[in-house]
């Protein structure tokens, strides 16, 4: 993937770029809002990572400008401001995801990869298929190798999110945010229990496990 990083903290940007390049992505760095906007206009990117507090042009204004100009490149906001209204204003300005500093690399990479898939979700999908696992979004049924799997409401949502991001690592925080819509971190790792319950339903009795634990990151659903 081609990623634009607009971040004035140079060491942070370098570390970020290195992490992303290790993951096989190409990165371009812009150190302020003005050059960031110019670069975003000049080239096509799969994802743009924007710090909220930028010199010259603020991150929010930059994204608003891009959106006004019709640029729909997925945007991940980075911010030291983690309050609810900060997040909401970032998403309102046209951001697609919001990550509060400091963050783990695994979290950043997982979110960037998740964003690159967003384009696929624009069209209306009624069925998801990952390997031999099939999900009917209208009938709300799940089958593996033609065998019906009975899921509860949350388990269904959890699996749907993981199937939409099949092959990508998803973090616990992402699951909490996207499936439960909670933006706080429960002290106990409740998410692990939910995932292991889902795993026992979709993998138990099958030869090949699909739901993998990714060390230091979270989980991944493999075909």
């Amino acid at each position: 993937m081609n990623i634009l990083i607009i971040e004035d903290d140079i060491p942070a940007a370098e570390a970020m770029a290195r992490g992303l390049m290790d993951g096989g992505h190409a990165c371009v760095h812009a150190p302020d809002g003005e050059s960031g906007l110019a670069t975003a206009r000049a080239q096509d990117f799969d994802v743009i990572i924007v710090d909220r507090m930028l010199p010259k042009i603020l991150g929010i204004d930059l994204v608003e400008t891009l959106r006004r100009e019709g640029d729909q490149t997925p945007v991940l906001f980075l911010s030291a401001l983690g309050e609810i209204h900060d997040r909401v204003s970032g998403l309102k300005a046209g951001g697609d995801d919001y990550l509060v500093k400091p963050y783990a690399f695994a979290e950043l990479i997982a979110r960037v990869e998740a964003l690159s898939r967003r384009g696929d979700m624009g069209s209306v999908v009624t069925q998801l298929k990952v390997g031999d696992l099939e999900m009917d979004l209208i009938g709300r049924t799940v089958q593996r190798q033609g065998q019906e799997i009975d899921l509860q409401h949350r388990e269904f949502q959890l699996l749907e999110f993981m199937m939409r991001h099949a092959g990508q690592a998803v973090t616990r925080t992402m699951l909490l945010e996207k499936v439960w819509a909670y933006h706080f971190d429960p002290q106990t790792n409740v998410i692990d229990v939910h995932v292991s319950r889902l795993r026992s339903k979709i993998d138990k009795g099958f030869e090949r496990p699909m739901l993998q634990t990714v060390r230091g990151a979270g989980y991944r659903l493999d075909a």
Partner: peptide, 22 residues
């Protein structure tokens, strides 16, 4: 911040749902 009026019942059910497997 961002206070608004809402029905607290789903909020409680959701928390119960979150902790039930644990």
């Amino acid at each position: 911040p961002s206070a608004m009026a809402f029905d607290p019942a789903p909020l409680v059910s959701d928390i119960a749902d979150l902790y039930e497997p644990l």
